[in-house]
Design a binder for these strands. Structure first.
Length: 224
DNA sequence: CACCAGGCAAGTA
DNA sequence: TACTTGCATGGT
């Protein structure tokens, strides 16, 4: 159902969510590097577990490119243990930091000064950074305009008939890009709001099949 | 006890 | 291309 009606509905849903739930103020990180670390650690992992791992890193003052570069794999893995998949995530963090040190002298602002397509290609070339992690870093770290697609986005919007469940990441992303005003604020808040309702409502309240698109009011109301 | 969380990459056919 | 599997802790 990729037509004009569903596209304006996508924006209406955003307006409704931001009005009822308020700005989410993402990303919850103090520095750009902390943001990137969080993005990698939260892959298929509950955010509460990521917070524990980040607290460990902060306690040791390891939220620093040169420090992370210097620490051994096993040391880092043990420190981020609560976030799960700690062995693989330790390698992923070190892969990112390696590029940061080699190509940008460890200065993340220099990496983020790349154009959006250049930055996206660079991030995707790093082993362990896929489309969602790359786009999260671009949007919330580098503050460039790109819509982040996650499991909640695909689940909620495909179940409501906006697009087929088997749509690829880029197809879903294009759908949102074509449906929304190209504003940083909207891309930022919309993804955060989707994660909010995904975590808090979608699982517990299986409202999804009760909300056909031809009853937009019922759909929007039932999200609450 | 089972299930799953703000994914990604490698292996198989 | 289309599945499947490994990676792992901690909350419900």
């Amino acid at each position: 159902m990729e037509n004009e009606k569903s596209r304006s509905l996508v924006y209406s849903i955003y307006l409704y969510l931001i009005k009822s739930l308020g700005p989410q103020g993402w990303w919850p990180a103090k520095t750009p590097l902390e943001m990137v670390i969080g993005a990698i650690l939260t892959q298929n992992t509950a955010w509460t577990n990521v917070e524990k791992a980040i607290r460990n890193l902060k306690r040791k003052r390891w939220i620093n490119a040169a420090v992370l570069h210097k620490r051994s794999h096993s040391e880092l893995a043990q420190t981020i243990r609560p976030s799960g998949y700690f062995n693989i995530k330790s390698v992923r963090l070190k892969n990112f930091v390696q590029i940061l040190m080699d190509q940008f002298k460890g200065r993340i602002e220099r990496m983020f000064a790349l154009s959006l397509p250049e930055l996206r290609d660079l991030l995707l070339s790093i082993w362990g950074i896929g489309a969602e992690t790359a786009d999260s870093i671009i949007l919330y770290g580098a503050r460039k305009k790109i819509f982040v697609v996650d499991a909640y986005t695909r689940r909620i919007f495909s179940r409501h008939g906006f697009f087929p469940e088997e749509h690829s990441y880029e197809e879903v992303q294009n759908f949102f890009h074509q449906s929304l005003p190209k504003k940083l604020k909207i891309f930022n808040e919309y993804h955060a709001l989707i994660v909010n309702i995904g975590k808090n409502f979608c699982r517990k309240v299986p409202l999804c099949h009760l909300c056909p698109l031809n009853q937009p009011k019922f759909y929007v109301d039932s999200l609450h």
